[in-house]
Amino acid sequence: MSPLQKVGRWIGEHLVLALGLLVLIYMFVPIAIVALMSFNDPSSRNVYKFDGFTLHNWLNPCEPSGMCASVVRSVEIGLLATLVATILGTLAAFALVRHRFAGRGPLNTLIILPMAAPEIVLGSSMLALFVSAGFGGKLGFVTIFIAHVTFCLSFVIITVRARLSGLDDNLEQAAMDLYATENQTFWRVTFPLVFPGILGAALLSFSLSFDDFIITNLNAGQTVTFPMYVWGVAQRGIPMQVNVIGTAMFVIAVTIVLGSEITRRRRAKAAA
């Protein structure tokens, strides 16, 4: 190998990684700005730039009127939609993996479609239903909840189904072999092993619901969720507390995910 080729190879080895890291940085720049702006002491509401450092926003997160109420509403909807979608989706995933029945093909398509349609179309069709069913004037918490369950459901089914079909069949057979009845096998072996998948699906559901804007905006009526609040104030000048909420969400979620990853790594290390 000529020195030139060596240099070329070295660059090839490290350039891709370096470029990849640059892309990651690109993905995190806006988040860094959000975190930074959560400490901003703005000179005027209309100028969106960093003027000075303050803890005021973090100490008074609920100062902007209506913001915390919208966060609470989003959390409520998120929890409720997650609960329903997770329960229904988990049952469906068990049906799809563990039972044979007619109509699996069409059902699989039905499950994928809500994820494949653009949000604006999904939202429009929900609105069309609510309007034609006479709920056009009663849009609000319930219609948002229904819409959120609908798009979370597919994600839950797919996530839990993946976990369930990756489960080693032998484990359940071993449990039965070791005197566990069908019920005991399910609750002592199957469920604990599928649970991480269900939990992951629930977290995904919650974040999808909490973050949804396009579908919600069409079906919300006068109800204001957190993304809708942000949308509303975006036109007038954003209170810095919005960044506090954004940063807090990020920190909480990253802590959960990194925490579990670190535990996993530690275990792997202990095993080695």
């Binding site: 988040i31 909490f210 993304p227 990020f250 909480i252």
Partner: peptide, 12 residues
């Protein structure tokens, strides 16, 4: 991880 903050806030 970027999904963990709001789509809207990131865009803003």
């Amino acid at each position: 991880a970027p999904f963990f903050t709001s789509f809207l806030i990131r865009t803003l």
